[in-house]
Design a binder for these strands. Structure first.
Length: 266
DNA sequence: GTGTCATGCGTAT
DNA sequence: TACGCCTGACACG
């Protein structure tokens, strides 16, 4: 569900499916009636993702800003699809496909300047790489007197990482989440950023988070991994590390639970 | 049916 | 640090 990979995937799929199409929009739940009326009959011209934010641009110009929060979810259907659930805030169709959105924290129409403001307050996005990302990340980490585990959940540090990726990425690069962000070496930061980019790209493609190397669980391919085999650390407290059998630990960090292997993540 | 939990985040204290 | 907000899935009786 909604970490950065989900958001970028939604942008890509919705652009493919609906860009250039005239949209009929409504709000089954009734909490976005006015907004839906403003995009009803407009043509979707572009869909952009930035970290965990989505921006849908319409012609005549309207910008729909969506943030899925913890529970937000899209559901897409060929044709009309089933009736929307009670919580469906926004529904639209172009006649060929139907899209439902429920549970999102933010569903609003904004001005272009608002989009810029939102983009300006988030950090480098591993799924929208720019040349200076690594420098921005290193500079940002060197300024923070918090643990790397807490830093990774801060969207100003990296835009798009959530609680699953934070645990998994730190496992993959062998860094203890409790280590002070400032103390990471240049090469630690570089490895972390490369792994972040790699994993989010894989997640965007697959539509789910799978970080485990199939060889570590005796499987042949990533696709064949069972749901219970896809992650190394997240929610595995008390279970043996998939690489060294040491029991996975957990604690609170940055207001959320985190899990790590005390042996692999020195 | 009820209770709990969740891949988020802003605001109040 | 706590709480509220958004919804739905699943465990439990």
């Amino acid at each position: 569900m909604p970490e950065g990979h989900t958001i970028h995937r939604a942008a890509r799929l919705h652009r493919q499916r609906f860009a250039g199409q005239r949209i009929k929009a409504w709000s089954p739940q009734g909490r976005f009636v006015d907004g839906a009326a403003r995009i009803d009959g407009a043509t979707l011209s572009d869909v952009r993702a930035a970290g965990k934010h989505l921006f849908y641009e319409f012609d005549p110009l309207e910008i729909l800003h969506i943030h899925l929060g913890l529970f937000g979810r899209f559901r897409g259907f060929r044709g009309d699809g089933p009736p929307p659930t009670e919580g469906t805030r926004l529904a639209w169709t172009d006649g060929e496909s139907t899209l439902y959105l429920a549970g999102a924290t933010i569903v609003e129409l904004i001005d272009p300047e608002d989009e810029e403001r939102i983009r300006g307050r988030i950090g480098p996005d591993p799924l929208a790489r720019r040349g200076d990302d690594l420098d921005r990340l290193a500079a940002s980490l060197s300024r923070r007197s918090i643990s790397i585990g807490a830093a990774l959940l801060d969207q100003k540090v990296v835009a798009g990482i959530g609680n699953v990726y934070r645990a998994e990425l730190l496992f993959l690069v062998g860094i203890d989440p409790r280590r002070p962000a400032q103390e990471l070496s240049e090469s630690d930061v570089e490895r972390l950023w490369d792994e972040t980019t790699r994993q989010l790209r894989l997640g965007e493609k697959a539509g789910r988070i799978i970080t485990v190397d199939p060889a570590d669980v005796g499987a042949k391919s990533r696709r064949s991994l069972d749901r219970s085999e896809r992650l190394y650390a997240y929610k595995r407290d008390g279970e043996p590390c998939r690489r060294c059998e040491t029991l996975i630990l957990s604690s609170e960090m940055g207001g959320r639970s985190i899990w790590w292997c005390p042996a692999c993540q020195g």
